[in-house]
Design a protein around this nucleic acid. Structure first.
Length: 472
RNA sequence: GGUGGGUUGGCCGAGAGGCGAGGCAACGGACUGCAAAUCCGUCUACACGGGUUCAAAUCCCGUACCCACCUCCA
């Protein structure tokens, strides 16, 4: 069985054949750190984290590069509005992003390069493009350098568009462009309006990188002229990815073999950046559900499907995940030896363009079977189901035993011990009442615990408490 | 104007010619002192109109509505 991926460049789902057997080089466009991350932003990170984990799980050594755009127009505009240094804003937002991603167990990339640290590589690539006749310094003295779209016949190949059919950029400043579709590789500093700290020396005067060039330069530096997979959100296909590919290929670099694009999480049918919604910032959402549950919500939908975000659906996802967790909690004390193994159906689902919805369905199948077996006490079959569930959750980054969750939980563990001590005392009283068939007393104790926000279940191994669903 | 995606049961959300994904909710049954949890079962859906086919949610044609991108974007 081999992994098949949907390549948006060819619009085909085809076998993944890495350039070097057993290795995979992945470049993912990360965020522009200009504001706090919302759930839409982190979906992309989760989707590509799953890809990375699956490649690792199937024996690939993965080089995973995810950039962070730490200088651009928006960062400059917003920082000016807020009266802070642009680099202070970028650094603060980067910390917020890191916090949000670790809360949902997104593994850190192999390396996370930023545009500001790669100006020499960007200048070098720009010079190559000028030498090759595909870029030119603006003749208006602005210090800008543009990619010459008309000089590259393949321009538009990624998104199947013809230059002549494209809507001319109405609001774009033509400045020194030969064609309105030409895009900036280098932006000359606007002295007086842009801070000196946001300008670097170059053969064309002081300035800063254009948006697209950084990814071409950094992908080339860390993954080489040709690499396996390039990922990002659908909105990046054009212009960002189209331009990245044009630049790179015009400079003689074959670039990515496969292009993967994740779909949106929308609210009210619209992309999140268009709706206001502070409530959708990751820290806000994590007040309602845990990181595991938010991640499950994202993984339960296919990466290429639009997800219409709703708190009701999020709550449903949290319950579904708790069902899986509950099985592990109840089975753990009785399973004995077990080993991790993935059912064929799960492997087949993941190999089919990362079919996480079907993969999650397989987890639920194993959980149901495991629950059935659990009623009969320990057995090899139960241990096997337990190992299956753990293995599958691991691949999806959802293993409840993963240290990542404990780190995100903070001081919760100590509190749990305290609650456990208190509740255990009450439950002992209730057990005594039940043995005396004093049902009124037993139920009163259970109600008291329930009113505090905890559920009580009677199991063959005795009473068990848990935090009521939805109140975590 | 160009390019791409979508519309599935009470809800979320898969599937891509036959064989009921899965979850949540609801209802019935088993279990329970009563519950909870769990298991078993029920609810048989594919925007609309045509067509192809032995067979269509799936393929084709048309229609409606929605969304994204066309140089700020996950």
């Amino acid at each position: 069985m081999t992994l098949r991926l949907h390549d948006t460049a060819t619009r085909e789902t085809r076998d993944f054949v890495p350039l070097v057997e057993g290795r995979a080089g992945i470049y993912v466009c990360g965020l522009t750190v200009q504001s706090e991350p919302h759930v839409g932003h982190v979906r992309s990170a989760v989707n590509f984290d799953v890809l990375r984990r699956w490649l690792s799980a199937t024996g690939h050594e993965v080089d995973f590069i995810r950039n962070v755009t730490d200088i651009d127009d928006k960062i400059l505009t917003k920082s000016a509005e807020q009266g802070v240094h642009w680099y202070a804003l970028a650094a603060a937002m980067k910390r917020e992003l890191d916090k949000a991603l670790s809360a949902i167990n997104v593994l850190p990339p192999t390396y996370e390069p930023g545009a500001t640290g790669h100006v020499p590589e960007i200048v070098e690539l720009t010079e190559q493009l000028i030498a090759a006749g595909h870029a030119y310094a603006a003749e208006d003295g602005s210090g800008d350098v543009y990619f010459d779209v008309r000089s590259w016949p393949a321009y538009g190949e990624l998104t199947r568009q013809k230059v002549d059919d494209m809507e001319p950029a109405g609001d774009a400043d033509p400045r020194g462009k030969r064609d309105p579709r030409d895009f900036a590789l280098w932006k000359g500093q606007k002295v007086g309006t842009e801070p000196d700290t946001a300008a670097w020396p170059s053969p064309w005067g002081r300035g800063r990188p254009g948006w697209h060039i950084e990814c071409s330069a950094m992908a080339g530096k860390y993954l080489g002229p040709a690499f396996d997979i390039h990922g990002g959100g659908v909105d990046l296909r054009f212009p960002h990815h189209e331009n990245e590919q044009a630049q790179s290929r015009a400079a003689g670099r074959p670039f990515a073999s496969y292009w993967l694009h994740n779909a949106w999480i929308t609210t009210a049918g619209e992309k999140m950046s268009k709706s206001l919604g502070n409530s959708l910032l990751v820290p806000e959402v994590l007040k309602r559900v845990r990181g595991q549950e938010l991640r499950y919500y994202m993984v339960a939908a296919h990466y290429r499907s639009h997800v219409e975000f709703s708190f009701d659906a999020l709550d449903d996802a949290a319950k579904a995940f708790q069902r899986i967790e509950d099985f592990l909690d109840r089975a753990a004390p009785v399973v004995g030896d077990w080993f991790a193994s993935m059912p064929d159906a799960f492997v087949a689902a993941m190999d089919d363009d990362l079919g996480t919805p079907a993969a999650v369905a397989v987890i639920h199948d194993s959980v149901r079977e495991g629950n059935r077996l659990l009623a009969a006490g320990p057995s090899d079959a139960l241990s096997q189901k337990f190992g299956e569930v753990i293995a599958m959750l691991d691949v999806l980054g959802l293993n409840p035993a993963d240290d990542a969750w404990a780190a995100a939980g903070g001081a919760g563990d100590k509190l749990t011990e305290v609650v456990d001590a208190l509740v255990t005392g009450l439950l002992a009283e209730r057990t005594a009442a039940r043995e005396a068939k004093d049902w009124a007393r037993a139920d009163a104790i259970r109600d008291q615990i329930k009113n505090a926000g905890l559920d009580v279940e009677d199991t063959p191994a005795g009473p068990r408490w848990s935090i009521e669903a939805g109140t975590v």
